[in-house]
Design a protein around this nucleic acid. Sequence first.
DNA 1: AACAACGACAACCGCACGATA
DNA 2: CTATCGTGCGGTTGTCGTTGT
Length: 372
Amino acid sequence: MGRAPCCDKMGVKKGPWTLDEDQILVSYINNHGHGNWRALPKQAGLLRCGKSCRLRWTNYLKPDIKRGNFSPEEEDHIIKLNQLIGNRWSTIASHLPGRTDNEIKNVWNTHLKKRLARMKAEAEAESVAVHAQPAPSSSLDSSTAKMAYHGSNPLSSQILCNSYARAPSAWEICDPVYVLPELSEDLIASSNNMCTSTIDYQTTSPASTLDVLHSDCIDSLELEIDHSRLSINTLDELQCQPLSRDMQIFIGNDRNNFEDPAGVPAISQDDKAEMVTSSSQGMRSDCDGEIVISEESLKSSMNLRVDSLVQQLDGAEVDWFLDHLDNMSPAMDSNHLSKNTINLCRTDLEAGDGMDYWLNLLRQVQPLPLFS
DNA sequence: AACAACGACAACCGCACGATA
DNA sequence: CTATCGTGCGGTTGTCGTTGT
């Protein structure tokens, strides 16, 4: 069955709208409402297709549309939301009153994307310059050094780490995607009793995990699940599979000794089977205690969670959400450093006024897909 | 002055999805 | 259950003004 065209192409005008056409459209909608867009142009006496009329109205003529340049605050908002949920322009637009998805998409493609690319290039160039000099040992923490050692491309991996270490904006360091699993601990514990203890985020680098994931210097990632924790080792010393872009999930108490999850109270065999079936394509079960999940599948799951959350927030709540992320800083103490572990600002979040609010919100969003 | 290159923005296109008959 | 429709969405293209040569 073919999809019917939105309008009869014959006799339909295309291209820029004239002032007269705008006035006819505005006048008609003011008097009658838009109703059925397909029928509108004929009723209004316009030689346009309904789709064109709808776009012209929603993107340009609607009275509450804000015209003019984007403020720095608006641009900042767009950048952050884009990092959170990607190119979901309509969702982003819903948090910027008076701005349309089309307008935001345009400003992103023409300004913000280029600006970000330029900033990143400058940061990398600076890192190269800094790295060319004998750096004082204190300028790199132990985790950075370790990452450089393990990457298949040591130079680029060090550049990546240095750029984050040099400009330690909390937003860049703290991967917002992973803040949610961190916060979701109570949600999991209360909802399905499958994961009752901590959910740690482990990495050998302070860089954003997704950036690490996308960088050429990383060959594989591993997720480890035991009865008490879900952790991610970006550069595990043990079983990084060369050139594999898959992610591995190990079930057991110790990644050196993958035990049958049946022996672990928090994850039963049924739970494991559920995990296999509930995770989308790209997942397979190779043997007892080991599941391989594709990078893409995992990313989409995580993005889904973030998106689900953001869509439930109104403008002020989104501001709070973003501000809170902005204010976070990696909570690294000597103990964490010794384990190459970064707890993503858990202390900061728990001390925050909005923690209860946060958790309430999180209880409303869907459970972590890996465990649902 | 003429033309090319570029950037900004409006508009278009095709697909997806939910609603409904 | 299926076909159809209306609408939303994101990517792409077209147009126009500006700037550089």
